[in-house]
């Protein structure tokens, strides 16, 4: 996999929201205001990248050598929850302005499926005759984690700009108001992003 191919795939053709359907709950909940969407995207990028590095290292140097792979899920979710909590404490003390900007989005990230999905994906490996090969090298893993969350941020920010208009539209039928029309609009967005799937890299 070339790095450029990973970047294009993460941002457009296999976008985490529009073609993998992950992180939909915060996507619907937080896209009501553009500033919130950007804050959520930034917080997510930070947490996804750091937890991917930690989980990748844990899987490669501790879980797989010790044969504890069946504990992967429990350990990853604990690492993510602990890491989010740690980031929150750290920011509260030393990065007050950033902490105020991100606000409530930080604790919400624990239950965002993007974080766990990326951690599990970068930790994937294949075993052939006792030789274990990891699918991602360190650099590829880092690029994948950063650009997957940037792809999330791209879609949620674009969608928040559209949503401001949708919510103030008085022509929307009563039954479609709220999340229903938001989902239908997302479908049009997914259609537009699907055009990138034809790219051969």
């Amino acid at each position: 996999m070339s790095i450029f191919a990973i970047i294009i795939a993460c941002l457009f053709s296999s976008n985490i929201i529009l073609s993998n359907f992950l992180g939909i709950c915060p996507f619907l909940g937080i896209s009501k205001k553009p500033s919130n969407a950007i804050g959520m995207g930034l917080a997510l990028t930070f947490v996804v990248t750091m937890s991917a590095i930690i989980c990748f290292a844990l899987e490669k140097y501790i879980l797989v050598p010790l044969g504890l792979d069946f504990l992967q899920l429990v350990i990853f979710i604990l690492v993510i929850a602990a890491f989010v909590q740690f980031v929150e404490f750290f920011m509260k003390k030393y990065l007050v302005s950033l902490y105020k900007a991100l606000g409530i989005y930080l604790p919400l990230i624990t239950t965002n499926c993007v974080v766990l999905f990326v951690a599990q994906k970068v930790a994937a490996y294949t075993e052939l005759n006792g030789v274990i090969t990891f699918e991602y090298t360190f650099i590829n893993m880092l690029v994948y984690a950063i650009f997957t969350s940037l792809g999330y941020m791209l879609v949620i920010t674009l969608f928040s700009f559209i949503r401001v208009r949708i919510d103030s539209n008085k022509e929307t039928p009563e039954a479609f108001k709220g999340n229903s029309i938001a989902l239908i609009t997302t479908s049009l967005m997914a259609l537009a992003f699907a055009a990138f799937m034809g790219l051969s890299l």
Partner: peptide, 15 residues
Amino acid sequence: QPSGAFLVLGFCVAG
């Protein structure tokens, strides 16, 4: 297709 999933779910929610 993936975009169809959003569309059908949106209409189901409304219905």
